[in-house]
Design a protein around this nucleic acid. Structure first.
Lengths: 228, 228
DNA sequence: GCGTCGCTATATCGATCCGATATAGTCGGC
DNA sequence: GCCGACTATATCGGATCGATATAGCGACGC
């Protein structure tokens, strides 16, 4: 799951190092807010061992030494020059050596694989992740992803609704009801996405065999798992 | 986190066995929908080793042999009687021996501990869990839990909003925006809970030093982390 | 009869993920 | 000159997940 996130980021944004990957995961994607280093670095090592990414050590100072500092007699002055250079040549703030990673062809293949089904079926995090990279997916697979997710959520919702929140105290009931609300909200979102997918599908409809069937009625059947 | 769920369930519902605990977690609580046996059984073993719960093996037939089957000469007839008895005496469908667990005093202490702070600070699952058992919590702690959670969500929301969804394609943007929406929805829910907590606090207000301060203005400041 | 499917039930394994912690360099403030 | 904040990589133990094994029993079909 993390592998997918890392590969996708490297695919879209080019070269990145671990710390930066984490920031982009937190800020950019919203979900996956707390990927810890304890999972990120092992994941990078894993991917590197598998040949999906390549790493390059980037030392603090630029490899190319530029011009040598002209000896002025003042040691501290020469040091100052070096320091200033280090600051402007690349980075701006207190940093240290880093390892930048870039994706390989094998990595791109792995990315496509992960995006299209393998891995944890679909918890909300891995679904969000897949959807965020959905533009790298062919349209039918995109539809299938959305449909699959919708079915799952509808099932969960039905389960909760049928169990009923009777026999629970105020707090437990509030949790259950809010969970159900959130589920409905999510399903509505998926329906909107499905609709715009169906529209843009245009010429190639019937691609999944049902994508457009009953499409417009979705808004009226939040309760049932789409069996009118 | 699972420990909390198990102990809470045993505290409220009495004796339960592993399989049943899982069902109640799935159906009753909605969240925690997929606790796997791979985490449940180790958790139970853990809790038993720690003395927080006690287990009893419950064999297929009742320990008390009831009356012996009167010999009728027909072996198959006697077997049928035994089978019928097993069916009615306790269970109705194809089952096997189980281990029922009940909470101990040490377990109750541990439950109180887990409920009031220890463990993972607050992801949405463990928060939902704590709230579901909030009636076992003193009112001030309940308020503190809600306030803490609200702050966290507001911070996350601000982070996402400030990062902005520009530079993202349709899908990634949709994910980010939906995440933000869900966050707002959650915050609204917390505000409603906070309000009713504040009201029911009634006589003992100022308990946490702020619970009611600015309470009514919360509805108008979803965007900011409550700094008007 | 007999296989096999589905349900109840417990348990373990490997892989992954998280939270805490260690290490290390740089910068700014006091 | 020391301390805190920030950038950066890495590892460890424990919790969790998904898959799988085992096992008893009922129901269905053939």
């Amino acid at each position: 799951m993390l592998d997918l996130a890392i590969l996708g980021l490297l695919e879209e944004r080019g070269e990145l190092h671990g710390y930066e990957i984490r920031r982009q995961l937190r800020e950019g994607l919203g979900l996956l807010a707390n990927v810890s280093f304890g999972s990120l670095y092992p994941a990078l090592a894993r991917l590197e061992a598998a040949g999906a990414v390549e790493a390059t050590e980037v030392p603090l100072v630029a490899d190319v030494p530029l011009e040598p500092v002209p000896p002025t007699g003042s040691l501290s002055g020469e040091l100052a020059v070096l320091r200033a250079r280090r600051r402007t040549t690349r980075r701006s703030r207190g940093q240290r050596a880093r390892k930048v990673y870039r994706i390989t062809d094998a990595g791109r293949a792995m990315f496509a694989d992960l995006l299209a089904g393998s891995g944890p079926t679909d918890d909300s995090r891995s679904f969000g992740l897949r959807l965020a990279f959905a533009r790298h997916l062919p349209a039918p697979a995109r539809l299938a992803l959305l449909e699959r997710r919708r079915t799952q959520l509808a099932e969960r919702l039905a389960e909760i609704r049928s169990a009923g929140s009777s026999g629970l105290d105020v707090y437990a009931r509030s949790v259950v009801e809010h969970t159900a609300d959130a589920l409905e909200h999510d399903i509505g979102w998926l329906d909107r996405l499905l609709e715009s997918e169906g529209l843009s599908a245009g010429t190639s409809r019937h691609a999944t065999g049902r994508a457009t069937a009953g499409g417009t009625s979705r808004h009226h059947s939040l309760e049932s798992p789409r069996t009118p």
